[in-house]
Write a protein that binds this DNA or RNA. Structure first.
Lengths: 123, 123
DNA sequence: AACGTATTTAAGTATTTGCTTAATTTATTA
DNA sequence: TAATAAATTAAGCAAATACTTAAATACGTT
């Protein structure tokens, strides 16, 4: 692995920099997946949606629109993004479609959402 | 609290919708803070930076530039964003500035970063 | 089959984001 | 104090985001 340096400082720890590059390389696939989920949950609207899903188990686009006071298409587009990455999944009942957090991501999201609390700022 | 509905469906659970709105309201401050941290960590470059900081304890902009193979200004701007929200903090040693994860957010970020693993996709 | 409802999709647009290059600040050293 | 080095800031720009409105699907009811 070649090393292009940005600085000329004496303290530059080339061993450390190479180690870091290799470490990143080893977990790149994992980072790819997780940062994608993080990016989705990093949007305030979607974060609220996930929080609501965790508490209510399942909700339909219509519910979200009423709760968050947003248009149905706007909600639908947020849902689509999360479904595309399998953060949420769907169940159809007649013409209403219920969304829930997919099992695959439930544990991960639960740890994050558990930091949401009424009074003290957790993070 | 008034309720504007998006659908006319019979199954609309107004009690549930009102409860959700109130619940969101109760944790709004918390969500504000956490989703801001999430938004920062949701960027792949910044996620890598945080991952590196957790492993290496502290790094300077120059290190990041070398490791991530990015320009120093680009790195600096990412660092600034995270510092503005107190996700990371700084220590000066001569003309190099070392960044580390702030104590305030360490626990929260550690739980998230612990999902980064070499082989299996965790999330 | 025709209509109404829930949802999605598409097209358009304003805002935000993340980089680039150039200029500036801060500190060290000759 | 002049030169160099590390870092930040500023200006500019291309790409990504998140909404809007309008149109299209899918399902259920009459």
């Amino acid at each position: 692995m070649k090393l292009e340096t940005s600085c000329i400082r004496a303290e530059a720890d080339y061993v450390q920099i190479l180690r870091c590059k290799e470490e990143l390389n080893a977990v790149s696939a994992s980072i790819e997946v997780i940062s994608k989920v993080m990016a989705l949950a990093g949007n305030k609207v979607r974060f609220k949606m996930l929080y609501l899903l965790q508490r209510e188990n399942e909700l339909c686009p219509c519910d979200f629109a009423d709760i968050l006071e947003m248009s149905v298409p706007a909600i639908s587009q947020h849902l689509r993004k999360m479904k595309d990455v399998n953060v949420i999944s769907t169940r159809r009942d007649g013409q209403t479609i219920f969304y829930r957090i997919s099992e695959e991501n439930k544990a991960f999201l639960t740890t994050i959402l558990s930091n949401v609390a009424p009074e003290r700022k957790t993070a």
